[in-house]
């Protein structure tokens, strides 16, 4: 079977994000960009499925600006077989991304789509569930374990109360949580090989999808700062402050 993995290009998780002073968004120029960490986990899982013979092809998809090709190449260096860029310069909100992915799924015919549970820029946590809905497929979100057998995907999910396992009839959508696997680092020869792998570029118009944003961002502001930084010299002092100053115990 084929596996499709969408990978998003986001500000690297180590970067301290700064809000622009005009309130229009966050500073993105001269900032390190990387693959969304959850998507690395998705790529790793898909590549392992191919390596174990369960999957025969891993298709990597990214949606966004031309530079997303770099993100796709990174995923190809990790073991993806070929890539598709849906190139668009405008803002793509999760519903639009899900609609574009649906069109690609219908073209490519994967039996499994593995996405990250959440993009660490918009923190939306929506796209996988939306895609599943649009396709009429089952969904296994926040996966910390995935097993495929007898036309089913068994997904162990990280839920608020602990862990839950569901069985999904294939084809299905799975979204990754952090403990699903530990993604590999691409080795140099694989990075070289990835440069030669097929990477097709299409546009939202080619796919016939209206990607007009539904949400308008009126402003982006800095969260209120905590005025921390106070030190106490001893446990005694800490207890005294908690009792008499903060009055929380």
């Amino acid at each position: 079977m084929k596996v499709l993995v969408p990978v998003k290009r986001v500000i690297d998780y180590n970067v301290k994000v700064r809000v622009k002073s005009d309130g229009s968004g966050v500073e993105t120029s001269n900032v390190k960009m990387s693959m969304n960490p959850f998507d690395e986990i998705a790529v790793e899982e898909a590549v392992r499925l191919r390596e174990s013979g369960v999957a025969e092809e891993v298709i990597i998809v990214s949606l966004g600006v031309q530079q997303c090709q770099e993100t796709i190449r990174t995923a190809l260096a990790m073991g993806g077989d070929r890539g598709i860029l849906v190139q668009s310069d405008g803002e793509l909100q999760p519903l639009a991304v899900a609609k574009l992915l649906k069109e690609l799924v219908e073209r490519e015919g994967p039996e499994l789509v593995i996405l990250g549970k959440q993009a660490i820029d918009d923190d939306a946590n929506q796209t996988g569930q939306m895609l599943a809905a649009l396709l009429g497929w089952p969904q296994g979100t926040f996966a910390s374990r995935l097993e495929l057998a007898e036309g089913e995907a068994r997904v162990t999910r990280e839920v608020d109360g602990g862990l839950e396992t569901v069985a999904l009839r294939l084809p299905a959508v799975v979204t990754t949580d952090l403990r699903l696997n530990e993604p590999r680092y691409a080795k140099l020869p694989n990075i070289m090989k990835a440069k030669k792998k097929q990477l097709d570029v299409v546009s939202p118009e080619d796919l016939g999808v209206d990607v007009e944003p539904r949400l308008k961002t009126l402003k982006v502001s800095e969260p209120p700062k905590r005025s921390g930084g106070v030190r106490v010299g001893s446990v005694e002092e800490l207890v005294e402050k908690l009792r008499n100053e903060a009055k929380v115990i």
């Binding site: 939306a124 796209t127 569930q129 939306m130 809905a133 979100t141 839920v159 539904r214």
Partner: peptide, 23 residues
């Protein structure tokens, strides 16, 4: 916006052709 709501609501939103507002 618990794992229950995060799992369910985007599915609802997509079926209604709505862009969800998260968290």
């Amino acid at each position: 916006a618990s794992t229950f709501g995060k799992n369910l609501m985007p599915r609802v939103a997509a079926l209604l052709d709505v862009q969800q507002i998260s968290d």
